[in-house]
Structures are given as structure tokens and as C-alpha cells.
């Protein structure tokens, strides 16, 4: 591994300065479960890792009246061990509790999962269906990007050299909102998704006012499916959910690899879309 410096930043400005000093030869470090493994594997030749998890803003975990703020360095366990957060965001718990094993969940967070920009990242689609806004800091100030626009290719994101993710903001679930995530893996745990789907619905009685469906591991980036728009204004019936599942399958553009064939993945997207929509509707009804 190329010898790099370790910089522990304690403020956003300090992190920006440290990242600016090294340009493309520096990367932010949060949980480290991806970046250290990739640095060791020679993915980059780094001169510095800038530890951003000692910055107050990246550690925020705050349920506000209208908005939930999730710092980019908040580890998975903090999401599911916080009873109030877990109760309000079961769709995030669905993913935070299956990213790696307990050891990984002690360090890795949904923010790092997003920045790693793997098409199969379990944390990304749940953020997309919660209509998450990502707050990015850089030398020219902060900017905001929607979660569905964050990833630009396998392992690539909108983050420019010198920028890092500070926090993610999502609307507080209102009455009648529900979300869920499910993936398919050959093992029960410690595995990478063959396919994954997150769904959310906003119900008014039996009518779906709005919905979002996002697909993992079936394209070069996580995909915001047309299935959500299809459901808007329709009743939450088995027929409509089946039709939405078919629409989601049509949006998938997977490859065949050692984890599964393209055909299997397209089939899985349909199954997982139906299941996660059903669970999201169930949770939305409980949340009435």
C-alpha cells in the first residue's frame, strides 16, 4: 500500500483544507470499511486520508419537526439502536441492519455506502425512496444533490476532488407514509445483493398519493424506477402493485455475472418490488 498521511479533521473547514492540499491524491475516511480495503488493493495511490468522523456535522442524528438529519459518518448501528429513529425509519433499518456483519455495522454508515457508489449498495435505494437530499462540502461552499442523482457509475459519484458528504436530509415521515427495503442474496447475511429494491408510499386512505421505487444491483447505478410515478393516484391494490412490479422489472438493465444472470435479476426486481411495496403499504397503514 502506498504510504499515506492520516489527518483527523475536527471541523468542516479543516477537512476541506486537508483535502484541497492533496487534490486527487486524498480521500475522505469515515468508517473505513471500503476505503481502507480499496487503498490496500491498490485502487488509488493516496497521499492522505482525511478522517471526517470527528466533525460534529457529520455525526448529527436528529429527528426534527419536518426533517431528519443523518450525518455522513453516522455508523449503521446508530440508526437501528436509536429507538426513535428506528421507529420512524424502518426502511433505513432494513438496510442498516444487513450491511456486512456486526463488526462492519460498528463502523460503516449509510453515508459511506452512498459515497462508495456501488450499484449493489444496500444503503442507497432506501435513501432514494426517502427523497433524501445530500449536503456536500467543498472549497466553494456547500451544495445539495438528490440521492438519486448522487451516483454516476460503478464506484463513481458527483463528488469532485476536494469535496465530501457532510450529511443527508430527508423529510420526516407523515401520517400514511411507509417504506421498506429487501435484497436477494444466496446467504441470509454477510453477502452482496444479487438484486435489491426499496419502496416507499404515501397513502391517503387506500389511495397512493405518491410512491418511490429504487432498484439496486441491476444497472451501473442505483435506479429510480418509473414504478413510483405509475402508482401515484392509484388504489393500493394487489393488481396495481403487480403492475408496478412489472414496470420496475422493465426499468432494470442488469448484467450477468458470478452472482446471477440478467434474467434472474429482472425476475427478482419484480418479486422484490411487490414485496417491498406490500410492506411499505403495511407500514403506512400502521403509521395512521
Amino acid at each position: 500500500m502506498h504510504p499515506f498521511e492520516y489527518v483527523r479533521a475536527t471541523s468542516v473547514d479543516e477537512a476541506i483544507a486537508a483535502l484541497a492540499k492533496h487534490g486527487e491524491r486524498a480521500r475522505p475516511l469515515a468508517g473505513g470499511t471500503d476505503v481502507l480495503v480499496m487503498a490496500r488493493a491498490g485502487r488509488w495511490e493516496l497521499d492522505a486520508l482525511v478522517d471526517i468522523k470527528h466533525i460534529p456535522e457529520t455525526n448529527v442524528l436528529e429527528l426534527g419537526s419536518s426533517e431528519f438529519r443523518l450525518g455522513s459518518a453516522v455508523a449503521c448501528y446508530r440508526v437501528y439502536e436509536d429507538e426513535q429513529v428506528a421507529a420512524k425509519f424502518p426502511g433505513l433499518v432494513d438496510s442498516a441492519s444487513i450491511i456486512g456483519g456486526v463488526q462492519i455495522q460498528s463502523r460503516a454508515g449509510l453515508g459511506g455506502n452512498l459515497c462508495n457508489a456501488s450499484p449493489s449498495g444496500d444503503g442507497i435505494c432506501p435513501l432514494i425512496v426517502h427523497t433524501t437530499t445530500c449536503v456536500i462540502a467543498g472549497p466553494n461552499g456547500t451544495r445539495e444533490v438528490a440521492a438519486e442523482d448522487f451516483c454516476t457509475g460503478p464506484g463513481r459519484s458527483v463528488l469532485e476532488d476536494g469535496e465530501f458528504l457532510i450529511e443527508m436530509k430527508m423529510p420526516m415521515p407523515q401520517k400514511g407514509f411507509g417504506a421498506a427495503y429487501e435484497r436477494f442474496t444466496p446467504r441470509n447475511e454477510m453477502d452482496i445483493a444479487v438484486a435489491g429494491v426499496a419502496s416507499s408510499v404515501q397513502l391517503d386512505g387506500d389511495t397512493i398519493v405518491s410512491a418511490r421505487v429504487a432498484l439496486a444491483a441491476v444497472g451501473p447505478t442505483p435506479i429510480l424506477s418509473s414504478a413510483g410515478d405509475f402508482l401515484a393516484g392509484k388504489e393500493a391494490t394487489a393488481e396495481n402493485i403487480s403492475a408496478a412490479a412489472q414496470a420496475a422489472s422493465g426499468d432494470a438493465s442488469p448484467i450477468s455475472d458470478m452472482r446471477g444472470t440478467a434474467e434472474q435479476r429482472i425476475h427478482l426486481v419484480g418479486v422484490l418490488t411487490r414485496r417491498t411495496l406490500e410492506r411499505a403499504v403495511e407500514r403506512a397503514r400502521e403509521n395512521n
Binding site: 473505513g32 481502507l36 460498528s106
Partner: peptide, 21 residues
């Protein structure tokens, strides 16, 4: 970060020590 052979307890939580500096 897959096998857990290097697991240690860090501030009350188990971690893979290969994935920590």
C-alpha cells in the same frame, strides 16, 4: 473485512481491526 478473524472491541463495539487504522 469479511472473515472477522481480526475482531477486537473498540470503545465497546466489535470491529474488524484490519479495517481500522
Amino acid at each position: 473485512g469479511n472473515c472477522g478473524a481480526c475482531t477486537v472491541n473498540l470503545d465497546g463495539r466489535i470491529v474488524d481491526s484490519c479495517c481500522v487504522l
